[in-house]
Amino acid sequence: MSTDETQREIIDEFSLLDGDREMSVMYLMELGQKLPALTDEHRTDVNLVKGCQSKVWLATTLKNGHVYFSADSNTAVTKGLVSLLIRIFNGHLPQEILGADLFFVKEIGMDRFVGTQRTNGFAAMIDRMKKEAEVLKSNAGVRA
């Protein structure tokens, strides 16, 4: 599934919640709960995403040229937010991640139900993931 297709799927799911703020936050938390646990070795200071008020650890691996992120957070809402990004990005090529336009954020009205502080933190997560993809892309270039 392309990153755009996954985003449209997320938009559809959130549209069922009809803008209900409590339901949206709870749904986000539920998604976070389903995120596979991050092993302790990945909960390092290096893996902490800067710019988030909550703690978010992000680990990146490359399998056959495809990027796989795993993450954890000390707060349920943030874990839900990062789970959305993982769902969109995982299994894609670094350049696909770099080129992805994340239109779902505006479409689901995220700033309305998570607030400015968390929206800023969310931007920091996206930034970090794109930077990781950039590094992997340039590494691949060096190897080629």
């Binding site: 703020r21 409590e22 949206s24 936050v25 709870m26 938390m29 008020q53 909550s54 000390n74 707060t75 349920a76 809402v77 943030t78 139900f113 998570v114 607030g115 968390r118």
Partner: peptide, 14 residues
């Protein structure tokens, strides 16, 4: 088992 931020966020939704 629930982070204060999450409690605050859900209470705000109400």
């Amino acid at each position: 088992g629930v982070h204060p931020f999450d409690v605050g966020q859900l209470l705000d939704a109400r």
